[in-house]
Design a protein around this nucleic acid. Structure first.
Lengths: 205, 205
DNA sequence: TTAAGAATTAATCAAGTGTTTAAATCTTTT
DNA sequence: AAAAGATTTAAACACTTGATTAATTCTTAA
């Protein structure tokens, strides 16, 4: 009956440390001893609670995919918002999520090279993106000639590129711009409003 | 005096195999035995020619940074091309380079999280980007009110985001779009012309 | 209170990993 | 052709790493 205590102490401590380190160094770069040390627990407890490094990793990865994809599902499929409004919400939602978890994109994308198929399947990415209300609305807007014709994937690449890439490349951005974390974050906040503006301007006929 | 032979056989074989595997799996995920096997050489030869896994890695990383950054230096600083022309050339140059070396961006960016400072310094990124003729021209265009005002870093993030991100996220793009490598490449070719169009459209006042 | 189960610990194991060694083979020079 | 040097090889070494074990401490239920 130590379930409640467990969830909020040892088990959770391990998971939190694991998330930070996995996000920073990836699966191969992370040693179970690092996780144990960072969470202040005995090495054996990692296997006691999670069976193996890989099981723990899968847990963190599933959670991370949830943050990266699932939070968008509702926005993409909200029937009550129009196309423009969805763009604003997607960008804002993403930038908020990634500001709180800045290492998630590079973590997911770099692990993705090792197991592309299964991870993609896990996300249900196709459902979330291409089969969404958002994409239907994009096509409608194009048919109604309210926006310029564009391949849906080209559009998604622009949207994600402009929104996600700065987080993937943040050390590089900070380096070439000679700015610190605070300035970087402020630029990201600014992007919440200007990315939708840019998108609108290259979509309008 | 076997120097000529050496460069074109064993040493080069190791380097080529190392490049492929490092690009795919990163430093931590690569085992020297994998490199040896992939290049068909005895394990000890890796240390015979390159001293250590880390020295070999540094060599590959330096080369990769060269591809990723230095090829742009001349384009960024060409005084004979105007602002618009430079955008076209940068995008085309990048897409050509990355089509030939699609794993370089995710490789560099994921290794970058471990050693941000030194790697950034190695690239001379600030010189290549912010202090370039290209950025001077951007400021001139803004002052002359020929384009909308924009923070140089915001501009660079859009340019790189739209150009580089698809390569970083290619497994994801292919997954969510249900397309194969050939279709992906064709989309990338298309982007060579449409990215400059998009940029132009959101820069014009 | 005490027995039973859960949680924690230090020590250890077995496999994996980067590297080295010493001998063998090949190449070049005289 | 023989000596000297470069290259290659199989084997081993030293260390790391994920995982397990067996004992100990803590917690809970009767």
């Amino acid at each position: 009956m130590a379930k409640e205590v467990k969830d909020s102490s040892t088990e959770e401590k391990i998971k939190n440390a694991a998330r930070v380190i996995f996000h920073q160094k990836g699966f191969a770069g992370t040693r179970t001893r690092d996780i144990a040390e960072a969470s202040g627990i005995n090495l054996a407890l990692l296997n006691y609670y999670f069976r193996s490094k890989e099981k723990l990793f899968d847990l963190i990865m599933t959670e991370s995919l949830e943050v990266f994809f699932r939070s968008l599902h509702s926005v993409f499929n909200d029937p009550t918002t129009d196309f423009e409004e969805k763009i604003r919400r997607i960008v804002e939602n993403y930038i908020d999520n990634l500001s709180a978890n800045p290492n998630i994109p590079i973590f997911i994308l770099s692990e993705l090279r090792n197991h592309p198929e299964e991870l993609i399947k896990k996300t249900g990415a196709k459902k979330v993106f291409l089969d969404s209300v958002f994409m239907k609305q994009l096509k409608e807007e194009i048919e109604a000639k309210r926006i310029k014709p564009i391949h849906p994937l080209q559009f998604i690449m622009n949207l994600l590129g402009m929104t996600v890439f700065p987080f993937v490349a943040s050390p590089m951005i900070k380096g070439i711009g000679a700015i610190d974390q605070a300035e970087f974050e402020s630029l990201m906040q600014e992007r919440k409003t200007i990315i939708p503006d840019w998108i609108k301007s290259f979509l309008t006929p």
